[in-house]
Design a binder for these strands. Structure first.
Lengths: 192, 192
DNA sequence: GTCTATAAAGCGATAGAC
DNA sequence: GTCTATCGCTTTATAGAC
């Protein structure tokens, strides 16, 4: 919250913006892009409209775009890159599943990118959505290749894993049963 | 379908209502529940607000509820019941995949129930959403049991198939590539 | 940088003529 | 049964005080 680097270089402007983006992400996850009204956003962030438009002159669209960019960057840093650069490919894949399970709160949290893909927001944010899944697929396919799979086999298995994660999140939320997600991840793990 | 047996029992009130529900379903699929404004609905159906509120006094919520009910009934009639009552279980499962591929237009069409599950609409239509997936899961599990699978195995495979279909629809739409859906269905078929 | 007040547009829904 | 006109409210977004 203090902006100057003092004795305890704690939170800076970037940190508070990141915190706001996290809160915005949750609002979009719960209510969707259309459903996330400025009054809900105001409520979730504790910021008035004036502050919000000062921070995001482009309004709601900019907020969502930056949230998606933050998610993209976070996954690249915490999931895709570790996956690509790990020395032990099998361990790298396992680490991916651990990160995924944590990020989606064991099935209690929805994938914002997947939700945007299904909704009308896809027209506006299609490029971000595609970029996210493309980067994930490339990192995972490369890692599966290192485990000895053929290109076709690695690509097919990548699709099954990514779609399995997305589908498990859909079903878990549809049935209000996060355990569906946990079970699905367990089964996906078993076939590498 | 027409309730009076005349010379040409063509279109009756039920048929036109079914046609309207189909058009409404497409609007909800493309724009989501929140995004489907009455002006879009008016445009898609060719009906003015007066007519719409005459047909659906409960407004948009009733429209969506009836669309969901129609989808539910359609799946029960065309997919779940054939699956449960078929003599050859393996052929029944294959028929399910054929119906699913046709209904979702080979991946070009989104699952409205799945989309509602991810969006805020789940709060309002949660019961319908759960009922749809529950009925599907029960029919498929029973059929897999008839193929000799254990209860636990049939339940797990059912989850993988349902979540595979939903996830494939998400990924297909995210990447603007319906082929992802077709490929995923092919792979799901292979493991019964 | 955050607030309040307000504008301008769009929303769902209703009334009433035909 | 379908239309037009309109209500009342909420929406996104802006202006300006502090």
């Amino acid at each position: 919250m203090a902006k100057k680097a003092r004795a305890r270089p704690r939170a800076g402007p970037d940190d508070s913006r990141a915190e706001i983006l996290g809160q915005l992400g949750e609002v979009f996850r719960v209510h969707g892009y259309e459903g996330a009204s400025l009054s809900l956003i105001t409520q979730a962030t504790g910021l008035g409209k004036g502050s919000l438009y000062h921070l995001f002159p482009g309004g709601k669209e900019q907020m969502a775009a930056e949230v998606l960019a933050e998610i993209d960057a976070s996954f690249r840093h915490n999931v895709f890159t570790p996956l690509t650069e790990c020395t032990d490919a099998r361990q790298g894949v396992e680490q991916m599943f651990v990160s995924v399970e944590r990020y989606f709160r064991s099935g209690r949290r929805v994938c914002l990118v997947g939700a945007f893909a299904l909704a009308a927001a896809r027209d506006t944010f299609g490029k971000s959505v595609r970029g996210y899944f493309k980067a994930w697929a490339e990192a995972l396919t490369a890692t599966l290749r290192r485990l000895g799979r053929s290109p076709a086999d690695a690509a097919a298995r990548t699709e099954d894993i990514l779609l399995g994660i997305q589908g498990a999140l859909v079903l878990a939320r549809a049935n209000d049963d996060p355990a569906i997600f946990a079970r699905a991840l367990q089964r996906l793990r078993k076939h590498v």
